[in-house]
Design a protein around this nucleic acid. Sequence first.
DNA 1: CGTCATGGTCACCAATAGTACGCGCTAATA
DNA 2: TATTAGCGCGTACTATTGGTGACCATGACG
Lengths: 119, 119
Amino acid sequence: MTIAELSTDSAVLIDDETCRLFRAGAELAGQKWTAAVLLAMARGADRFSDIRGLVDGISDRVLSARLKELERQKLLARQVVPTVPVQVRYTLTAQGRELITILQPLVTWGARWKLHPSE
Amino acid sequence: MTIAELSTDSAVLIDDETCRLFRAGAELAGQKWTAAVLLAMARGADRFSDIRGLVDGISDRVLSARLKELERQKLLARQVVPTVPVQVRYTLTAQGRELITILQPLVTWGARWKLHPSE
DNA sequence: CGTCATGGTCACCAATAGTACGCGCTAATA
DNA sequence: TATTAGCGCGTACTATTGGTGACCATGACG
């Protein structure tokens, strides 16, 4: 079922699969810092401290949590390089890159209709 | 600046305009209940109690807050019909309908790469 | 021996978000 | 007189999130 079809179907409750998917994606990308982390990675940062350096103001704890969640959702892959001290590299998966592409129009949309700050 | 270009530009910090827009939109749509409310309206619900009836489980207070925020962001318009008791009608603006269209691919994306529950 | 870098974790606190539930207002209706 | 419809608001409570700063393990380096 597409959103276009929804407007013709008024019998179904809203908490159905479409809405769940809609929300799951929007919520994932909409969580604070998540977009910034994805963009940092799109710019080439692939190590914990690189990302932290690029994303101004994020704390270790939150970055750690975001990376963990994004890995769980398979938007990025975590691989340990056994140097000393150990290094950990994060890379975007196809799914992650796709999400960034998909959300691109959101930037255009946001630019066109200026959103009003401090929601 | 597009996200595609971002990967070639590593000098800029992440908290810039693009990221702000990206986040603003994603955060707006990602907030709990917001997507459900938008979908309910896309299905034709235009009154407070209609929406509440269609969105299973939402509380008055939250629905009220969402409608207010969405109105502030100009995603919907609120108009009072001076009947008695008074009626209030909410309608999607062009901007609001556009957002739904733009976020449509997110549903497809979410369906393709199953997101993992309970984030 | 002290200390640095890396990639985090943990405990604690504050702020934000969400829920439950009752109230208010008005005029028609039972 | 009591109730209902319609649209929320106010208060109180709980749950989730985010930030801070301390801490940890390892091996190299001075």
